[in-house]
Structures are given as C-alpha cells and as structure tokens.
Design a protein around this nucleic acid. Structure first.
Lengths: 330, 330
DNA sequence: TTGAAAGCGCTAACAG
DNA sequence: CTGTTAGCGCTTTCAA
C-alpha cells in the first residue's frame, strides 16, 4: 500500500508537505496542495493508522466492554455509544465480558495495550479492574453500574426508585403478595432492584419477608426455574422481574402453569422491548433509557478525553413505568 | 506509561532481550527472562500496540460492519464473530452501516486506515465498497448477503429455499391466498425471500400475482403499514414475513384489526427470537443459524488472514422451519 | 511556505 | 544467547 513518501515523490514535494496538505495544517500553497491531493488519489493513498497513532501518541478508538451484545438493553446502549463516537470520528472496539471479572480484566488489558483513548464499560464490580483503570489514568465512564470506589464518571439509572414505584403500582392495583425475581447477589443492578422492591413493600405497608424473593442469573432459563419455585412455594399474587431476559422465562413459566398475567398474577418487568405489547395481556414494564445512556456516556467520555476538568460525575437517569395489561386485575 | 527501554534499563539488558523474553521468542537465558518479567511487572509495562503494529505491519483487529446492532439477528452474528475472534487473540471493531452504502464505504475506509487484518460485513450491495475491498486485497468475508461480483468468501443462508418451504407449509395447512411482506428492492435477502415465496406458490399450484406482495424497510413501523395495506386491498389468508422486526409490526397490525394469527390469518416470519413462543398463538418462524454464521465467517476470515489458499468459497447454511400455532388453522 | 531530520516504541536482522 | 542497529510511516520541530 502506498506510503506518504510515495505520494511525496509523485507530487514532487516533501513528506512534510504531504502531511500538512492532507491534514489541512498551516498554510500550504494551493497549487502544491492540489498536486498532493491528486497524487494521493491516484495512488489510493490511505494514511497508515498505526504509524500516525504511534507518532501522535493517541488513537481515535474507544473500547466498549459490555456484559453481552445479545441483551437488547446493552445493545441499545452500544448503539447510543456508537452513534456519538462515530460522529466524533472515533471507532469502537466491542468486547463481551459476560459479567466475568477475568474477561473484563483481559479486555481492559487489551484496551490498555492498544492505547485506546478511553473506555466505556458496564463494570462487573471487580476491584482489580477498577484498580487497573485507575493506575493508568485511562479515561473511563461506567454505564448501568458504577465502578467500585466510584473511580470515574458513571451514567446510571435509578433502578431502586423505579423498582419501588413498580411495587407501589402493583399494590395500588390490589396485589398483596408481591414477589421479586432478581439477578445474582453482588451485581449492583440486581441488588438495587431488590432494595427498591423492599422499599416499595414497606411504603405500601405490605411488610414482606424474603420467602417472596428469588435470585437467578439475568437469563431466561434461570428465571423460569426461579419463577416456578417461587410460585409453588410462596404463592405470590404478583411478580417484579428484574430484567427483560428474565421476563421471557417468567412468562413462559406462567403460561405453562396456566396462570394468566394480570388476572392471576400481576407482572412488571424491567426493560421495554418491541414484543412486550404483542403478548396478551401486554406487559407492564419499567422502561430504561438505554440508548440515551450510551450516548450520554460517550459524550462524557469524549469530554474527558478532550481534557475536561475535575470532579467525577454521576448522572442518574430515570426509568419510567409503562403500565399495561399484565399488572391490571380484570 | 513505561516503554520497552524502561524495562530494559531496569532489568539491565537490551530492549531486544526484553522483546524476546516477553514474546517467548528464541531462547533467552532463564535468569534474564525472569529479571525481565519482574521488571515489566514492577513497571506495569504494557507493550505499545500501535508501535508493535507499525513494526510488524499487521494488527490483530477485525472489523465487523453490520446493518444494525439492535437487530437480534445481527447481534447473534456479532456474538459468534466475537467469540471466535477473541479466542484467536483478535479484537473486534464494531460498525453500524444502517444499510447505507455511504456509511459502509466510510467504515471500510476506516478499516483500511487502521490496517485491520480483515473485514466481516453484511454488504449493502454497493459496488464501490466491493471495489475498494478488492483494490486493497483486504481479506473479507461477507455474511448474510454476498458481495457484488462475489469477491471474497461468503456465509449465507438459503433464504430462497426456506421461503419456499414456508409457503409450502402454509399451503399444506390450507391457506390459499398467501401474501408476502418483504424488504426493500435491491437488498438481496429481501429479493431472495420474495423469489422463494414465488417458488413456493408455483410449487403449490397457487399461481399468484403481485397484488399479494408488499415491500417495506426491514423495520416494524414500515411493515405495519405495509401489512395494513395488503390486508385491506388484497385480502390474503396468510402472510410470509421476511424478518423479525417486520413481524413485530405485522402482528401489531393484525391485533389492531382483531384478526387472530393462525385462525384468521396464517403467519410465518423469518428469524426466531425468545419472545416468539410467548405470544398466543406462538409464532411459526424460519430459524436462521445466526450465531453459527458469525462464528463460521470469523473462522474463514482468520484462515484467509493466515494465508489460506485460493478459491473464494460460499458456504450456504440452511434455515429450518419451526412450525407453531400461527400457521395452523384451528 | 517548504524541506530536512528526528523520533514515537517496537521487532528483526545481523554480529558478536 | 545477547546487544547493536535499522527501520516501520507518520508528524512536527527547526532552519532556510
């Protein structure tokens, strides 16, 4: 592939002039600039990224480390990030951590080696990862969950409050034995949503012990089993489900047991999705602004990269309840 | 950040020895190697990727250009790609082309500049893109749709045949006026599925004119409008829908018109998704092996990068029909 | 305004 | 087995 000196030769100028002309730097004689442009075009010249990055000691690449691209919530986050990054001339390296600290560390390491300009991640909560990031002072923005010791900016959702409101909504609809299906202990969003659930029970004067709580992975199959166990052992009349994938499992369990959402068991789940209005009755959800979170996080990161001053910030966006048939008796 | 010569200094050896020790190259005295290792660890040394890439004239990065990460089909492809790439020590740069040729070209350009080792893409069909790829002899594998002039390997699905079988299935179930909702003209998968639909009608002896065909974008909203128009103007008794996002729109239209899938209108849609079994009746789908396509494509690409010999290959995986309630009268 | 030259950090000949 | 040295392709002083 043609190099800058090939272009320089062909245009009859020095490499410095080519560089200046192609980057629109300082003032280059229009005639020379034109010669350079056409020489570059004729040769199909493409500047060598690695060489430029080495010289400039900087790259226009962002790393995005998320749990799983197959989860629609993260996918929407990714899209928000990509749109903003691309508009600013940055590329995105995608990494799936599967919420495993080891994978997360490994990817952070890759990002460090590649000298990416910054990192966006949904932290697993691993302390070593946070330490690594801090040690190299790599610009970082956490999305969906904060980094341990809140190193770095974060873009979060007020899950706890949203969960509380979901429970209050269920209570208003007349449900009395409200259960909760949440994610693994230690995953902050899972714990937050559980805490909000308890807040809601308290606020509704429903007390409630932990017999109505089950945990599983943030996936359909685990949630299906958890729902079965909860339904069989604790006879809840409503369910708060902590994410979209889990909702799939829960609804499947309900269908198999012949229990109709809304009428027999009230259901509210986190995360909206196109299909939630297709089922009968439509699913009441807590909609999170995933795309906006990604976009905001990317903007914050770009600001940091551009050298934005001090104070780590935490932006908490709010989720809102979208009441539909699955939480209405009748 | 520490450089290789910092490490060399600290270990009291030359940079060449550090390089060799850290890369496990040739034979390095165990004692020196150990000194290097600990010096590197103490300094938190991370090799400078851009420098290494420049020197080696190669990167361990793959570009993945897909229509849209928010589409579950592409998301599954992406996951398959990432898993294989990661296992081989490659990173993935993610790009959303939104099926716009201009964006596609732009991203190919970025990939070229960054000197990625290879590209995976779901081609928009743009000829300039294909030419660009060919000109620079960049290893490339097309996924889901072939490149124009079949430059490069491709991993496809036999959409046409799958569509045909879907139609035959509907015919067997007794549907007689089978309609088709497909994507934009010129998008190969859209045209293929339409061709398969016509094959199916012919094979079933149903003749059929184009009054039963509608096109829209591969999205829910466009498909919803298209479905309304088709239902109002041509009175089909069954529908073949060319992708998952469109199915959402079609099902919404049906629900609003009070027409029940299966009983009133048979429905088969491309792409399986977790929610398709949650609706009533469950949706009959043509399931595509998206993850496997991504994984296979990545393997083929890595082979090419490793210098695999000649002949461009086209792998056609098969989709299979998953009959469920939406295509059964009753 | 332009060119010459240095050097980013690394690896790979080539000597020793 | 180890060190010296020469670039990879680019941007950016520094002089002219």
């Amino acid at each position: 592939m043609a190099t800058i000196s090939d272009v320089a030769h062909r245009a009859g100028v020095s490499t410095a002039t080519v560089s200046r002309a192609l980057n629109g730097k300082s003032t280059v004689d229009p005639e020379l600039a034109a010669r350079v442009q056409s020489a570059a075009a004729e040769l199909g010249y493409r500047p060598n990224g690695p060489a430029r990055n080495l010289r400039k000691q900087a790259t226009a690449v962002l790393a995005l480390i998320i749990s799983d691209v197959e989860n629609p919530f993260f996918t929407a986050v990714a899209r928000g990030v990509e749109d903003v990054a691309h508009a600013a001339g940055y590329s995105l390296v995608l990494c799936n951590s599967d919420d495993e600290p080891a994978k997360e560390r490994e990817y952070i390491d890759v990002a460090l080696q590649e000298r990416v300009a910054g990192i966006l991640l949904t932290p697993t909560g691993d302390a070593d990862s946070a330490e690594l990031l801090a040690r190299y002072a790599l610009p970082v923005v956490a999305v969906d969950r904060p980094l341990p010791d809140s190193t770095g900016d974060a873009v979060l959702v007020d899950s706890r409050r949203a969960a509380e409101q979901a429970v209050l909504h269920l209570a208003e609809q007349g449900y009395r034995r409200i259960g909760c299906l949440t994610g693994p202990r230690g995953v902050l969003t899972a714990d937050d949503r559980l805490a909000g659930y308890r807040d809601g029970l308290r606020a509704a004067g429903l007390g409630g012990s932990d017999e109505l709580v089950r945990r599983s992975e943030f996936r359909a199959t685990g949630a299906e089993a958890a729902a079965r166990s909860l339904l069989a052992e604790a006879a809840p009349d409503a369910l708060l489900v902590a994410n979209n994938a889990m909702a799939v499992g829960v609804l499947a369990a309900l269908a198999e047991l012949g229990r109709r959402p809304g009428r027999d068991v009230g259901v509210v789940a986190f995360d909206d999705a196109p299909w939630t209005t297709l089922i009968d009755p439509p699913l009441t959800v807590v909609a999170q602004p995933a795309y906006d979170m990604g976009a905001l996080a990317a903007r914050l990161l770009l600001d940091r990269i551009a050298g934005a001053r001090g104070e780590v910030s935490t932006s908490t966006l709010s989720a809102h309840l979208v009441p539909r048939g699955s939480s209405t008796r009748g």
